[in-house]
């Protein structure tokens, strides 16, 4: 139904913006973990700025998709590509918000020494960044295998989340003074775990765009 050349041009602008949005998110997560690990509060300001750009990208891509849906009446794989992009940006935008939240919490530790060595949390940061990149890359390259791999990678994030949680519970039990930091670290832990889940959602939408079906999963 669409006029091919103009449709492909519009779609390209969506994918270009998705790549850009993905880079912003990468920066946001990286710097939000940086606030925590390097104890550099100035990085939090960068995260706030990048988050604004992420929100703008979300709106721009949404408008492009809506314009394409209205003007080009895409069908079949064209239609699935656009609906998938529309859904993916919601997850991407939420990831941006969660990076913002991590940065915000990370500034609240002040100069206090951490109650535990930051081991798994930075590792989780690295993994979820890669997951987001893989999700967007899978969309752009129509890479079903890469999209499906996100679920497995997320299992690693989930197991790290559990390890950190157990450690924090033990530390709080051991010394009630650890509660404040323990809760804050737990929140960061949870945000990272949620980012992993959003990346899995992105992979699911990529699968829908390619196959027309959502992956079959056992309800959790």
């Amino acid at each position: 139904m669409s006029i091919r050349a103009s449709y492909e041009k519009e779609l390209r602008s969506v994918t270009d913006n998705l790549v850009l949005m993905c880079r912003y998110i990468e920066t946001a997560i990286e710097k939000s973990i940086g606030v925590l690990v390097e104890r550099d509060a100035s990085l939090a300001d960068d995260v706030y700025e990048v988050d604004k750009l992420i929100d703008k990208m979300d709106r721009d891509i949404e408008q492009s998709c809506l314009r394409i849906l209205m003007m080009e009446n895409p069908v079949a794989s064209d239609f699935r590509e656009i609906t998938a992009a529309l859904k993916m940006i919601t997850d991407l935008e939420r990831i941006g918000d969660q990076a913002w939240d991590i940065a915000d919490i990370a500034t609240q530790f002040g100069d206090d020494e951490y109650i535990k060595k930051l081991e798994h949390i930075p590792q989780m940061g690295v993994i979820v960044i890669q997951m987001v990149k893989d999700g967007v890359q899978a969309y752009i390259n129509r890479d079903l295998e890469l999209a499906r791999s996100l679920d497995k990678t997320d299992d690693k994030v989930d197991s790290m989340f559990s390890i950190v949680m157990d450690e924090l519970i033990a530390l709080i039990k051991e010394n009630p003074d650890n509660v404040e930091q323990g809760v804050m670290l737990m929140m960061i832990n949870k945000y990272l775990e949620r980012i992993g889940d959003h990346a899995v959602n992105i992979g699911d939408w990529v699968e829908y765009a390619i196959t027309g079906r959502h992956p079959k999963k056992i309800e959790k």
């Binding site: 139904m1 091919r4 449709y7 895409p74 069908v75 079949a76 239609f79 027309g212």
Partner: peptide, 17 residues
């Protein structure tokens, strides 16, 4: 047929290829 055609030729036709 319009969201997930099975045949490449259907896909090509309805998407204007």
């Amino acid at each position: 047929l319009f969201s997930n055609p099975k045949d490449k030729r259907t896909e090509s036709y309805i998407t204007g290829r």
